[in-house]
Amino acid sequence: MSILSLQSIGFSYAKGQKILHELSYEFGKGKVYAIIGRSGAGKTTLLSLLSGLVSPTEGSILFDGKDVRKIDRYKYRSHYVGVIFQQFNLLPHLTAVENVELSIRASGKKISEKRKLALELLEKVGLDDELAKRRILKLSGGEQQRVAIARALSYDPDIILADEPTGNLDLTTQDEIMGIFTRLAHEENKCVIIVSHSPEVARSVDDIYELAPLKSKKEIFRTGEVNAHRS
């Protein structure tokens, strides 16, 4: 059963520029999905829609059968969806562990030892105590990516969304990061959705949805039918 379902969604900016049209995808738990496509195809827009930062202008997104538009989107973002942004979006004045703790507090979940949990999560993604206590700007890109993943996992969400998680990383680190995502899906039954244009990412996921840019308002390049490929 799918945890997240796109029901013929479309998205246009206020000026009328149409980005997405008639997309109908299904995402289930225990799998890693990749949404791939060329630049301008609307990958990041789709991720924003999935994370509840914006609402579709057409159709609806169902989370666990409920229309995301009708549920508290702050709660949706802080409880059910963990987002790893392309630019990480960590707070630079805080340390790695404090960034993770902040996210735990934002969820409002009653966890007595927040610091301990945050350190465990960071360790899980490969950051030791010493790195955990460093401020964000004192960490490398790969380390920041790991902090972002730990933060996304901090409140134990059902869905993990990652925007170009391997974009700026070397191949070894890319593999390590992808390994984390695969473990999360296969061992912890999370639904992991990765937005990427990287073929390496596409090879290591369970399902792929391919997006292509719309050529014009009238011409629909892609109807949004499932175009899954096993790697």
Partner: peptide, 12 residues
Amino acid sequence: YEVGVLTAIGIK
């Protein structure tokens, strides 16, 4: 930016 991050992770 801080406002953006805080609201993005679900703080009202």
